[in-house]
Design a protein around this nucleic acid. Structure first.
Lengths: 183, 183
DNA sequence: ACATACATGTAAGTTGTTACATGATTGG
DNA sequence: CCAATCATGTAACAACTTACATGTATGT
């Protein structure tokens, strides 16, 4: 149940319409909590009928016309409550590691090309994060808000660094691996 | 659509009943693809009616009695096909990073204690992985199957190392952070 | 008037979660 | 026989995914 809180956070940072939120999820919040536009529209409806957000009073739009939302006090309180509450980490689900484990049983045929592709994807993502860091967090003076957001970006950078290293290492071990095992 | 393949992998490593699978997911495969017993039973039913696995011929049990499965050739082929196929990484969803971003807006009140708790959890997990590495992969001679499984374990170790470092770093920055922001 | 992009939304299906139900086996 | 444990399963719900539907605004 984190999507509503992701949306509340985004709307507090800046009131937006559904499509704007979708775009911001694609290039910022979505880096650690992805969502499609269908999820976002549905959740905006729920949040509005729950009294946590409202459409900007200036606009009373019809279907097909832009509709922007802002967070109400009840929404801010709910977000603060959720942020402070203790939560267990959600169980991990990583397809690539699962496939490696499967490959140990049915053979590595065909997986190497995809490892290279993933390596490329993670390198690009890493470059993008580093670009953002250079642009938004120049060395020296982070405010306390900046410091938290910088910390989150750092997690992204370090995670992508981990994946590029791990994939590089994995590929190095590959040339002399055999086909399907004998198990 | 990875749960069936996680189960096929586990069953190829060793034919098992639903409950045994649940236990193995809790302490091995579930480290990177978690599943509850309800998911597992439902999926075992589907895999059986799909002709990918079957109950061990020696047993024709009734309800409440142990029922073990093994993988059929069609199941092994499906797993090999899936393993070799190209797949995009699934979008990331991390609650803690989302909460940090929310905390930048509504204040850090209460989150510090949970960061400490998470740090502790990740340290324990790391210790557990290192124990497994010491036990199952003593230095020297990995077979090629071992090498793949060792690689997967290494990913787990490096990921937990990342989290413990990141959380430690995050907590270091905390003492002088203020309460709710002015935004 | 048409094509394109913008913007909001519906519907159906799959997957994952939570709570509960039922039968078998074992130890006291 | 009772409680506890092992083992398999059902049901209801919540979340996520994929495909499609509809309306508006703009440029040509």
């Amino acid at each position: 149940m984190s999507l509503p809180h992701a949306i509340l956070t985004a709307l507090l940072e800046k009131p937006s319409s559904g499509l704007e939120l979708t775009r911001r999820f694609d290039k910022s919040i979505g880096y650690f909590w992805s969502a499609t536009h269908q999820q976002i529209y549905r959740e905006l409806g729920r949040l509005e009928s729950g009294g946590l957000i409202r459409t900007l009073p200036s606009e009373q739009p019809a279907r097909g016309q832009r509709k922007s939302y802002e967070v109400l006090p009840a929404g801010r309180e709910e977000l603060a409550r959720w942020t402070a509450a203790s939560q267990d980490p959600r169980p991990m689900r990583d397809t690539l590691l699962l496939r490696m484990r499967a490959a140990a049983v049915v053979g590595t045929e065909g997986i190497e090309a995809d490892l290279r592709r993933h390596l490329d994807l993670h390198r690009r993502q890493l470059a993008e994060y580093e670009e953002i860091e250079k642009r938004d967090f120049p060395p020296g003076k982070d405010s306390s808000q900046d410091r938290l957001r910088h910390l989150v970006l750092r997690a992204g950078i370090d995670l992508e660094t981990f994946w590029t290293r791990w994939l590089t290492h994995a590929l190095e071990e590959f040339p002399d691996l055999p086909g399907p095992g004998t198990a």
